[in-house]
């Protein structure tokens, strides 16, 4: 239980610091720390495969790309600094939209946390710890969502390439 509180505290504090940081590089690093703590929680749940996948996919692959982009932009500070001096109601639309989304997230979280949690499903901890079982379930029962997700990622990739390769003169 001590370990649970340790990893939980690291995950929560690191996540809070992610949004409290001014320097985007530190935000990325703290997010990695948070993912690492989450992975520790998965180990405590007796799911080493999920824990290691969390490190490989999120902390390893995705965050490296984040770091890559932040480094290439070389943005030492966030660009919102001068916006914060303006009165809250006169800030740009994106910031107000973000505030609305954040409020919606808080409401959703409160709703989800206050609901009485039922029994955990049949897909229990023993099933997650076995890679064989995980693979079988993924490619039979959850095959459709799995394939749809891969198509979604493909669409995002094609979209990114189209946006990056678009000729700016074509519109003028």
């Amino acid at each position: 239980m001590t370990l649970f509180y340790l990893f939980g505290a690291v995950a929560v504090i690191a996540s809070l610091l992610v949004i409290a940081q001014r320097n985007p590089i530190y935000s990325v690093l703290l997010l990695i720390a948070s993912f690492g703590a989450l992975s520790g929680l998965y180990v405590l749940l007796d799911a080493p495969f999920v824990a290691v996948t969390q490190i490989i996919v999120y902390a390893g692959a995705i965050m490296v790309l984040f770091l890559f982009v932040v480094m290439l932009l070389n943005a030492p500070h966030e660009e919102t600094e001068h916006d914060e001096k303006i009165h809250p109601l006169r800030r740009p639309g994106a910031m107000r939209f973000g505030a609305v989304l954040a409020a919606a997230l808080v409401v959703e979280l409160l709703w989800a946390l206050t609901r009485s949690s039922g029994e955990p499903g049949a897909f229990g901890a023993t099933a997650v710890s076995s890679v064989r079982e995980l693979g079988r379930v993924l490619f039979t029962e959850y095959a459709f969502p799995f394939e749809v997700t891969s198509v979604l990622i493909l669409v995002a990739m094609v979209g990114a390439v189209v946006l990056a390769k678009r000729d700016p003169r074509a519109h003028t």
Binding site: L29, I32, P48, F49, V52, T53, I55, I56, A59, G60, A61, V64, L67, F68, M71, V131
Partner: peptide, 21 residues
């Protein structure tokens, strides 16, 4: 560890940060 191969892979992917940072 029963997922040893993946652990090695995970640590290899973390060691990129040392160089990048």
């Amino acid at each position: 560890v029963n997922v040893a191969v993946l652990v090695i892979f995970a640590i290899a992917s973390m060691s990129v940060y040392g160089i990048v940072l």
